[in-house]
């Protein structure tokens, strides 16, 4: 049974972490914009620009189109934000174990990751605009498309932990506690590297960034699923986007780069927590620049057909290839 204290602490910690998550998420968006601008030979906005934008959006009223379904239309951004924050609570931040770690595992996280996208689909369909409808259809299609490579990554990781005899192979805490690179031989290393690359390409898709931003496709759909959103609702979607960016980075760190600085520096207690958290965010920023900013700045937008082909054929194959290498590695390790 849980004591009142534990529940209270959990709630407080969750609240604090949500706020930190939102702030860091928005900073991430700012960094992304700034770096992208530098890559395009522009000066770019200041890092606090997302906060300025958000402040403005939140001060504006919501405009609900005449032929929209208001309840669904208004619920979508809240659901999107809430689910992204919940995923954050399942993530280990540095050496701090996930707050909700005891109540769910990687499978749940995968499901929760799909919720913001689903909320956007629902909101898009509820907008009653042809652009939003087309955008929502595309969002569904691309969601279905990138789930396959994502699933193969999760399975590979779980298989690895399972075959190494670690309990709770799907729990994020055990994944973090046992860096996957240490569990494999050379063949598995290659497999994991392939999976890492696959994950790097799934992230921009999960975040609806160029080249996978077909659902929003500014030039043809004028914002697609988000076309009718304005004011506070759009502000909520912006926050959700920031948190989701953090979550995807955090997930990549948790699975592929779980190492912490504190053991190296010989720190303990709160100092260790703080140092590791900072190190964690630094890793997230670096990963995000590499897998989101560089890709979105250096590529043109794909057609929705390309997105499907890319994820089902190329990255699907890559994911399965990585998975089979990992399995092969552990089987070989079992033999010798």
């Amino acid at each position: 049974m849980l004591s009142m204290d534990v529940i209270l602490v959990t709630i407080l910690a969750a609240g604090a972490l949500s706020i930190i998550g939102i702030v860091v998420g928005l900073i991430l968006l700012g960094i992304d914009r700034r770096i992208s601008a530098r890559m395009q030979a522009r000066i770019g906005p200041p890092l606090r620009q997302p906060f300025i934008d958000l402040k403005k959006l939140l001060s504006k009223e919501n405009i609900i189109p005449e032929n929209a379904i208001p309840s669904l239309f208004n619920a979508a951004p809240i659901v999107a934000l809430a689910s992204s924050i919940v995923v954050l609570l399942y993530l280990p931040i540095g050496s701090m174990m996930p707050i909700l770690g005891g109540y769910g595992d990687l499978i749940l996280v995968m499901y929760l990751l799909a919720v913001p996208a689903l909320a956007m689909v629902a909101g898009g369909f509820a907008s009653g605009s042809p652009y939003a409808t087309v955008g929502a259809q595309r969002e569904m299609v691309s969601m279905i498309a990138y789930e396959l490579p994502l699933a193969s990554i999760v399975i590979a990781v779980a298989w690895l932990l399972y075959s190494s005899g670690i309990a709770d192979p799907f729990a994020l805490s055990s994944i973090v506690a046992n860096p996957i690179w240490s569990l494999v031989g050379p063949i598995g290393m290659v497999g994991l590297f392939v999976l890492l690359l696959t994950f790097a390409w799934v992230s921009p898709a999960e975040l609806s960034k160029i080249p996978f931003d077909t659902p929003e496709a500014e030039t043809e759909l004028a914002g697609g699923v988000l076309v009718e959103y304005s004011g506070k609702n759009l502000g909520l979607f912006t926050i959700a986007q920031g948190v989701k960016t953090l979550v995807m980075g955090g997930l990549a760190v948790a699975i592929f780069f779980p190492w912490n600085l504190s053991p190296l520096l010989g720190l303990a207690g709160y100092a260790a927590l703080a140092v590791d958290a900072v190190f964690f965010f630094a890793k997230v920023i670096l990963l995000m620049i590499l897998s989101v900013t560089v890709i979105r700045t250096g590529l043109a937008r794909f057609r929705i057909t390309h997105v499907v082909t890319l994820f089902w054929v190329w990255f699907g194959v890559a994911g399965l290839f990585g998975l089979s290498l990992v399995i092969l590695d552990s089987v070989l390790a079992g033999w010798f």
Partner: peptide, 8 residues
């Protein structure tokens, strides 16, 4: 380009 001065 990241390491160059912006043109703006």
């Amino acid at each position: 380009q990241v390491f160059k001065i912006p043109a703006t």
